[in-house]
């Protein structure tokens, strides 16, 4: 199916439309299964040592977590707006939106770098205790997703370059966008678990 010709719509999607390629939903569902298991494992271990997890949470910098959550949300909004703009055949705006989202992703990685290095300086490593094992491993697995997602966003920008929006296959844009939203929503839950709940 070709996404090139679509009715103009200001709403997000329209009735009966599967965003992106069907296969990406298999990937997204699979990743959600993995992370659901990871979240459950975290809470199960927390139940065994609530004090240790409480102390670990207290050692995290909540402001950095907040900044990163806002960066993720904003990048997701840019991506969704970029797809909406492409659907309305606006030239240049989609690529600009994806570039802005990419910049948010880079900012997220930068904040994570600051956060990790502060932890290492303070002598906190994955081997410190169970909380920091989960903290580093989970945020690390998520960071891999961020890096892959940034590659996907870059791919979308390259795909838009030199192409008229009228001939751009919107389905490709939706596929890439869906992956980036997955990265966003996984972080929302991680933020709650690591920074707020533990």
């Amino acid at each position: 199916m070709s996404g090139a010709v679509r009715p103009d719509t200001t709403r997000a999607g329209f009735a009966g439309h599967v965003p992106g390629e069907a296969g990406i939903w298999l990937f997204i569902a699979g990743d959600m299964v993995l992370f659901s298991v990871l979240f459950a494992v975290f809470l199960t271990h927390r139940a065994e040592a609530p004090d240790l997890f409480g102390a670990g949470r207290a050692a995290l910098d909540p402001r950095l977590g907040l900044v990163n959550t806002l960066l993720m949300l904003t990048s997701s909004w840019f991506v969704a707006t970029g797809v909406a703009a492409a659907r309305r055949r606006r030239p240049r705006i989609p690529a600009a939106c994806f570039a802005a989202a990419l910049a948010c992703g880079a900012g997220f990685a930068g904040v994570k770098y600051l956060e990790y290095s502060a932890k290492f300086t303070a002598g906190l490593t994955p081997m410190t205790d169970d909380f920091f094992m989960f903290y580093f491993v989970y945020t690390g697995i998520h960071m891999i997703h961020v890096v892959i997602g940034m590659g996907v966003l870059y791919g979308l920008i390259a795909y838009l370059r030199g192409r008229d929006i009228a001939v751009v296959n919107l389905q490709h844009l939706e596929t890439g966008a869906s992956f980036w939203h997955l990265v966003d929503l996984l972080w929302i839950v991680l933020f709650a678990l690591l920074y707020l709940v533990a």
Partner: peptide, 12 residues
């Protein structure tokens, strides 16, 4: 084509 996405998922 879903097989491609399945393989990427397993790789991750």
């Amino acid at each position: 084509r879903w097989v491609a996405f399945f393989n990427l998922w397993c790789a991750v």
